[in-house]
Design a protein around this nucleic acid. Structure first.
Lengths: 115, 115
DNA sequence: TAATATTAATGTGTGTTACACACTATTATA
DNA sequence: TATAATAGTGTGTAACACACATTAATATTA
């Protein structure tokens, strides 16, 4: 296994799990999948479309999101997702976990934070 | 799937990947596995021993760590791990990725950061 | 003191889960 | 007619949890 492979596999694991957080953060208003990809990409988070679509479906099956087809517009049919109230609840919980975890890890990797 | 299951599975994914970072952060000096578990636990990171041991071996097989048995002491034999120079390099790279990623995600989940 | 339980320390094996990657499919638009 | 927009499926991989095994030292109790 080469250096680049090693690094990218570790980076992959690092990003893993944070995708849900990123996605949920964008769903205050209804957004469709393809738009999420570009939107997140613009903000520095690169998510594969073929990762995102199953993720959205999974979150919907868990009751975190609901979706609605929009076939009215003069464009390809789009499936808009938004958080349910349950999803909002979940989002706040994992957001807290994230922030806690970040501060713990940051204190581990940068012991000379203070002053 | 119940609420608690959903949450803990998401949290699991969130923690996943950060374990390597946490572990590497503790290996400036040689440390043995069991000690890592307790040490990280004290600092707020709970890692299962049966997660850690394979992880350490994996990192060693990738050249990130080297190990050395200590059978001299009047205790059970301990396998001490420390970063190689390559490991140090990798650590710095993924640390940077982590910090970048954290700031991106934090800006996503807390749009009202400034001032 | 002897017997036993607990802690310290490392290890293996299996199942689950999410992500990447490759692919298909359809409709607008350039 | 080709490319972008939009959604989907299927397979492989890799890491983690969980359960279990093993040995040696220490603590507890008989």
């Amino acid at each position: 296994m080469e250096k680049d492979e090693i690094i990218s596999s570790i980076i992959l694991e690092l990003r893993r799990g944070t995708i849900i957080l990123s996605v949920l953060s964008q769903l205050d208003l209804p957004v469709y999948g393809y738009n999420l990809v570009t939107q997140l990409s613009e903000k520095g988070i690169s998510v594969e479309a073929n990762t995102l679509y199953p993720l959205l479906r999974r979150l919907e099956s868990q009751g975190i999101l609901i979706s609605q087809w929009d076939t009215e517009e003069s464009t390809k049919p789009r499936k808009y997702y938004q958080k349910t109230q349950f999803g909002e609840e979940i989002y706040n919980i994992i957001k807290k976990h994230w922030l806690d975890n970040v501060s713990i890890i940051n204190s581990l990797i940068e012991p000379e934070v203070s002053l």
